[in-house]
Design a protein around this nucleic acid. Structure first.
Length: 583
DNA sequence: GTAGGGTTAG
């Protein structure tokens, strides 16, 4: 255009600016901005609004605000662009501020303003301002508009008022797929995974076709329930709706199968997926990580890089922790350094925690501590938690105590830290100190979450707590455990009594023997036919003693036993565990 | 020219 003697006008600039925004490179936009000034269109309402939008999309809200401030006149779209800009740049309180600004002018907010500001409120996470916006929306008569009511509902769920969210859901007559997705997600956020699945099937029955977001959400719920049957049913629906190759859906499928204990199915989905992106690769990498296949994690990561796909920060969490699992200290450091040097990422607390864990596991406790203390960002609970875990594994009580003190300050309500330190004391026979830690825990009002395990037999779920005697086949279960005890002791089993710290003497040994996962195991041995794997799920980490017993049971009964605890899988066969005794 | 729901981790 420059050579043709034809000059761009305001329409040209309004049309070209969105393209600059799409490149998300602020430099192009700034060049265009200079050109606009040269031609004298910077004060034009439409051009300036497009400039605001462009700067917002390029992530520079201060430049966007400069343009906005210089505008001689602004319409509702200009204001909305500021709200959306702050929202997309995660500066939520300013988005709310600009919403209030609209009402200070003689303008009336529209559904764009409402749905955007409600999303900002949802992200702030406190219902106060969201509730006020609710009132304003009612006054402006926009409450029945789909975007507004959906955003409002989502705001209530994200701000912890799920009863308000559910109430709103029930009043919505014309529920679209987004309405349903928010409801399913609302259940997931409240850990009501079964209810999440139920809502999904109701939606399906009511004839609302699920989209990829519906599937990834409900698969997340099924994964959390470790419900393979449910997950497989959902997979059938995915195929029915033709979303079997959608990368977002395949990522969730891979994660679901992995979390339900079926690495083979996860792998099959991954192999069959054609357009893989960083998320689906990471899902597969993480699946291997959860199943203790650290070498495969590193192989997959290298394959991914060869295919020219850039990792994200979650990929690196998996890779670094795989290096830690296999004692690859040098490789771990090389990958860690590659984050800044090759992948242009700055490591987050998670990555530093992985490195502390890596050094700690390798027995380099001093180096691990130095690493934590010389981090460029302030070490958080995750980092100190990794170091405490290492102190426990290597029996460094002195450092453990020091680190635990820090953790008690940073996160006084996490029971895990107290239990870890207390167990370190009792392992050394320092029962008085162990009890003191327990007392401190009680003093701070912290309670250990009661452990429970569950097992599915013939489509029914049976839940066990420690010492549970509520099951109708309790007598047989305890008989089976007695039999197992004899066989285990014959194999050289010695109870690892430091895992049951509150008790003393023989009683202590007994308490250990009736942990929930052992009860579930006994029930599985009784009810499931040979050749069928015994799948047990636990809400906490499994204890070392149970881990030992599971290994022995897999050998003496010739059974495959799969225990899914809070953060990983243990697959026991022939006296060995897939985790390589590392978890 | 502006808008709602999520995917991979520990």
């Amino acid at each position: 255009m420059g050579d043709t003697g034809v000059y761009p006008n305001q329409y040209t600039f309004s049309a070209i600016l969105p393209a600059c925004a799409d490149t998300v490179v602020v430099i192009h936009g700034q060049q265009m901005h200079s050109l606009i000034c040269k031609h004298g269109y910077e004060l034009d309402l439409f051009v300036a609004t497009a400039l605001v939008d462009m700067y917002a999309k390029c992530g520079d809200m201060s430049l966007a605000e400069n343009v906005f401030d210089e505008m001689p006149e602004r319409n509702l779209v200009s204001w909305n662009c500021m709200i959306v800009g702050f929202l997309q740049n995660k500066i939520y309180d300013r988005a709310v501020g600009f919403f209030k600004g609209i009402m200070g002018e003689m303008l009336s907010p529209d559904q764009v303003s409402f749905s955007s500001v409600l999303t900002a409120c949802a992200n702030i996470g406190v219902a106060d301002s969201g509730k006020q916006v609710h009132g304003v929306a009612v006054k402006h008569g926009v409450i029945s508009l789909a975007y507004v009511k959906n955003s409002l509902m989502d705001m209530y769920f994200k701000c912890g008022s799920s009863s308000d969210g559910t109430k709103l859901f029930k009043t919505i007559g014309d529920k679209d797929v987004v309405t349903w997705n928010i409801m399913v997600m609302g259940c997931v956020q409240n850990d009501n995974f079964e209810e999440a699945c139920n809502y999904f099937w109701v939606m399906e029955r009511e004839g609302v076709p699920p989209d990829e977001i519906s599937f990834s959400t409900v698969l997340h719920a099924a994964a959390n329930l470790a419900a393979l049957d449910q997950g497989t049913l959902i997979h059938n629906q995915i195929i029915k709706y033709g979303l079997g190759t959608n990368p977002c859906v395949t990522s969730s499928l891979i994660a679901m199968y992995a979390k339900c204990g079926s690495l083979d199915d996860a792998h099959r989905v991954f192999e069959e997926s054609k357009d893989r992106n960083v998320v689906s690769w990471t899902a597969m990498i993480s699946a291997c990580q959860q199943h203790g296949c650290a070498i495969r994690v590193i192989e997959l990561f290298e394959e991914m890089l060869e295919e020219g796909i850039n990792p994200d920060f979650i990929t690196l969490v998996c890779v670094l922790s795989a290096c830690g699992h296999t004692g690859r200290v040098e490789e771990g450091f090389a990958y860690f350094n590659s984050m800044t040097k090759v992948h242009a990422m700055s490591p987050g607390p998670e990555h530093y925690a992985c490195m502390v864990d890596l050094l700690g596991r390798a027995g380099q406790l001093k180096e691990a501590k130095n690493f934590a203390e010389s981090m460029p960002i302030k070490p958080d609970a995750m980092v100190w938690g990794a170091l405490l875990g290492a102190c426990r594994s290597h029996g460094d009580l002195e450092m453990g105590r020091e680190v635990a003190e820090k953790l008690f300050e940073i996160e006084p309500h996490n029971p895990g830290n107290y239990i870890l330190l207390s167990n370190m004391y009792s392992r050394r026979g320092m029962l008085k100190e162990a009890n003191e830690v327990r007392r401190l825990m009680a003093f701070n009002g912290v309670r250990k979450e009661p452990g429970c395990s569950w097992i599915d037999v013939k489509n029914k779920t049976y839940v066990f707590t420690a010492h549970d005697r509520s099951h109708s086949r309790t007598v047989e279960i305890y008989e089976m455990l007695g039999k197992l005890e004899v066989l285990a002791k014959r194999k050289g089993y010695v109870p690892e009594t430091h895992y049951a710290i509150n008790d003393v003497g023989e009683y202590k040994e007994q308490r250990l023997w009736y942990h929930s996962e052992k009860l579930a195991l006994a029930f599985g041995l009784l009810t499931l036919p040979m050749g069928v794997p015994i799948r047990i799920k636990k809400n906490l980490r499994t204890c070392g003693d149970c881990h030992t017993v599971m290994k022995i049971a897999s050998e003496v009964f010739e059974r495959e036993i799969i225990v899914r605890d809070i953060n990983r899988f243990h697959r026991f066969t022939g006296g060995l565990c897939s985790c390589g005794d590392y978890w």
